[in-house]
């Protein structure tokens, strides 16, 4: 067994600022950062707060910043990290801290409530079911892989550095909107919302959201840019406007 040092963010009681504390613990082959945090919690810091659930990269609970990069703790193997120096483990910086590694991500759920819901067309068959080609739903299936870990929201500089939480819904909810807007059964029109209150224009396509997504969803190329182009079609392209006039 070898040892590794973890520099973990600990909050002060009642205050938002805290500090890093170094914990040295024994590690073994196959361990991930979450294992190490649990070991430290069990042996050295019983009051260390950490949110987790599945330990399989599917629940999206253990999001944190490991060596400064937003990642899931349960999917960060220790043998992929440089253990010659302390491994920093911090909470997501875009959201308010609750305690230690736990952040308040409820803003995301409030944003989701404000988005237009799925509005399917009338059923195609008398039994109340629909018919659609597999190819038509393939595109939106990618977006449904999202586990809502909110790492994309954490790394997005529009939220992280510029705090545009009131004007921009972030990559997670642009992906969510894409899943609905591109759905072959959906009839709702989300483009005015995307342009105005959802602030899609704030995205400057730096692709950080795509880089940190643990589900490897092509957030920028397959969700955000196609939505941006739909908004351009509707609001910024005079040729398309003219065509719509002729098409009635």
């Amino acid at each position: 067994m070898s040892q590794a040092t973890f520099r973990i963010w600990r909050s002060k009681p009642g205050g938002e600022n805290g500090g890093f504390i170094d914990y040295t613990t024994e590690i073994s082959e196959g361990m991930v950062v979450l294992d190490a945090v649990h070991k430290i919690q069990a042996e050295q810091a019983q009051d260390l707060a950490c949110r987790w659930n599945c330990k399989a990269g599917k629940c999206g609970s253990c999001s944190a910043e490991i060596n400064g990069t937003p990642r899931l703790m349960c999917m960060s193997r220790l043998n992929s990290l440089d253990l010659t120096q302390p491994v920093t483990v911090e909470p997501m910086r875009t959201f308010p801290a609750i305690k230690d590694l736990v952040t308040d991500v409820s803003w995301n759920f409030r944003v989701k409530k404000g988005l237009k819901k799925f509005a399917p067309r009338k059923p195609d068959a008398p039994d109340g079911t629909w018919r659609m080609a597999q190819k038509d739903v393939d595109r939106v299936q990618e977006f449904r892989k999202c586990i809502e870990c909110f790492l994309c929201q954490d790394v997005c500089h529009v939220l992280r550095d510029h705090e545009k939480h009131d004007a921009f819904i972030g990559p997670r909810f642009l992906t969510y909107t894409a899943a609905l807007e591109m759905h072959p059964l959906d009839t709702a029109d989300r483009l005015p919302d995307l342009k105005n209150q959802n602030g899609i224009g704030y995205c400057n396509i730096t692709k950080c959201c795509t880089k940190v997504c643990p589900e490897h969803i092509h957030i920028t190329d397959n969700a955000i840019i196609p939505l941006k182009e739909r908004v351009v079609d509707r609001f910024y392209d005079p040729v398309m406007r003219l065509l719509r006039v002729f098409q009635g």
């Binding site: 990069t69 790394v155 550095d161 510029h162 004007a167 602030g199 224009g201 704030y202 400057n204 950080c208």
Partner: peptide, 19 residues
């Protein structure tokens, strides 16, 4: 804007491609 992912920026104001 930003220099790289999860790296601090030199300015506070931001309009993006919104305006």
């Amino acid at each position: 804007d930003p220099p790289s992912c999860a790296v601090g920026e030199p300015r506070k104001s931001y309009w993006g491609e919104h305006s």
